[in-house]
Design a binder for these strands. Structure first.
Lengths: 228, 228
DNA sequence: CCGTCCGTTTAACGAATTTTAACAGAATAA
DNA sequence: TTATTCTGTTAAAATTCGTTAAACGGACGG
């Protein structure tokens, strides 16, 4: 079980400190750089599991920084922090790019989710991420292998199915808010993604219907609650 | 209703003392710790209803402290106090996060409001989880599954119906004030929400009419009383 | 380069839930 | 008593959600 180390580049020192404290409290070794140039210097000296880069920074912006970082370590996961009101084409740039991103304002919960998701995806030895298995009534849900097992029947879940079910499990017996789920999984909480999420809820309900004590309850206008 | 005790961790002794005096005057037993390490020591010795933690502190910051506290008591409500000059989006981010948040400077009134809100939520949960079921005359009311059962007839309730009936049950045989119900279920107690609530009272009355000993009584100008 | 497969999104429609409106009836204060 | 505020009930409107199927688009094998 390797410790996860994060390079955080954020020029707003308040936000930077806050994030660093929060991440450290979550057992992520976090080093804060106050601009792109400093981040680069630090990155050359130490080894990191992932980078969290603000896009707008003095000295060197997040994109340029990311490019330079990639010349050293081409596969390190990078999450960008961006303002919500960026122009469409910039956002488009992120979407088509391989990197993950998070739009401000975001909640700590969303950030943690994205970090864990990206770690899950990038590390093959998946034991880094906590709670990789859940028990849902008579089901067993293996998050990292994306398997939902009922007695001897194993069902392979898709990525989105897994992500949504995992979020539901994490909030077992309490309300998972639609917006949190949308922002965590679909990044943007617009109309279409919400429809898409509905479709996945239907799928999950169908899968889980074998155990009648398990239920995904809709809390109108708020979200969903996984009962078991 | 037993006494509420608060652990306050604040390194600014002026503010700390001020808060402590104020909270004590409001009948909250308050103990002040001047840094995270001390707070942790105190927390291990005594029992608290909620914690009020400054995020930026020497020795141990608020997040780390919160994490340690949660290893001892995973459900204790925690309100963070954070610096005033954070950007809007950061603050917004925390608002949507799992933990409650208050940015300096804040008014005492605001603080008290938050404390009461979070206590309401947590005592709700505390009294909810063990007894998530009520008996209303000959009915059985399963809050978490939103089911109202009469003999062998099961009726699925909607979210709003459930929320309102639960509030009534919690105040069984005493007055549930309109404003309280409106604020906790509809958030805002304006004219339209009040009308909406009337509609739900009608619905609940219809559902409960099967047992003639059960009645939702209107207390004119005050609220409702669930008799059973 | 082409077709196929698979996961995801979009579309379309229907159902469930909540809010708003409209009007009638009770309770209360002046 | 009369005016005013508050409550009860029903129906229509608006919003949110559920489900199915088709469209889309990337990955893969030929």
């Amino acid at each position: 079980m390797n410790k996860v180390s994060i390079l955080l580049a954020e020029d707003d020192t308040n936000l930077g400190q806050l994030l660093k404290s929060y991440l450290s409290a979550k057992e992520y070794d976090t080093i804060l750089a106050i601009d792109g140039a400093e981040a680069m210097k630090i990155f050359k000296k130490e080894k990191f599991s992932l980078c969290l880069l603000d896009v707008m920074m003095p000295e060197m912006d997040g994109f340029t920084l990311a490019r330079e970082i990639r010349t050293i370590d081409p596969h390190i996961p990078i999450i960008f922090l961006t303002a919500k009101n960026l122009k469409e084409d910039v956002i488009e740039g992120f979407k088509t790019g391989a990197d993950d991103y998070l739009t401000k304002p975001f909640s700590m919960e969303e950030l943690i989710y994205r970090i864990e998701a990206i770690l899950r995806r990038s590390t093959k030895r998946a034991t880094d991420v906590p709670a990789a298995e859940y028990t849902i009534g008579k089901f067993n849900f293996d998050v990292t292998r994306q398997l939902l097992t009922y007695q001897d029947q194993v069902r392979k879940l898709t990525t989105k199915e897994t992500e949504l079910l995992e979020l539901l499990c994490r909030h077992q017996n309490e309300v998972l808010e639609r917006n949190l789920a949308l922002k965590s999984i679909w990044i943007d909480d617009n109309y279409f993604n919400a429809r898409s999420m509905d479709v996945y809820i239907t799928k999950l309900r169908k899968y889980l219907s074998k155990d009648e004590n398990v239920e995904i309850l809709n809390i109108h206008g708020k979200g969903y609650k996984l009962l078991c």
